[in-house]
Amino acid sequence: MSRMTPLVQAFLKYGKLAECPIYDLHTHPDRFAGIFFPEPDMDGILRSMDRCGVAKIAIAPHTALLAPLDGNKLTFAMLAAHPDRFLGYLVFNPRYPENLDTLLARSLETPGIIGFKIHPSMHDYPLIGDAYQPLFAWANAHRQLVLSHTWADPRCDAAACRRVSEQYPEMIFLLGHSCWGDFERGIALAAEMPNVYLELTAAEHVPGFIEQAVRGVGSAKIIFGTDLPWFNPHYTLGCVLFADIEDADRHAILHGNAERILDISALPTS
């Protein structure tokens, strides 16, 4: 099968397509210590989205990953400034469990907040640790979305994700990076559990992974993400476009699945 379908050719020519908007559910605006980003602020992020045809992104700014509670203020500010382009995760750092009640309240009252982002590796705290359990119980009760960093790391590998998803089956669980390095077990988990999804950030760079994931779990369980500004949306888009899959799969990954699980039409507009 030729990779150069009309969809791929159109993207190559124009760089973006109105009939195939992109929803990126894994981004981290703002500066970061270990890496230089040319344009990590809000305006730079918007320029990137416009250039690449990204309709909406879900944000968890670096500040929020690192600074408990206060860091989420940038999320609120960006959502308020551009409610039609930005969705938000609140970041919960289990090292500061006393903040959880405040965050839970804010999540329900703030338009555009779609769930929580957690990072067991960065916060050096296992997914199955006690401090995360109230968050998962809440997400399970309210059918809310949690995006976790997942990796071949005992704190957040596929085995840990399995324990959480089996205990909280109603929680919509995005496996950020698709359990990078532990791909087969991550795919098996997403195939088995109805509310577990593979999220592509960085995983899409691994040659053959997208094809493997589509074969293993079906494109309806795969969510597009870039870690923007870590990765150029056009490169990650290209990984999806040039994977050996069908155009229907590409549409599902780039926008259809996000539209479905977030009910995009019900979200705030400017």
């Binding site: 990650t236 290209g238 990984c239």
Partner: peptide, 17 residues
């Protein structure tokens, strides 16, 4: 290639402005 997807590598250059 083959450590990276060759088609994808065209995009960042083609549409970088």
């Amino acid at each position: 290639f083959p450590d990276r997807q060759p088609g994808a590598s065209l995009f960042p250059l083609l549409h970088c402005g």
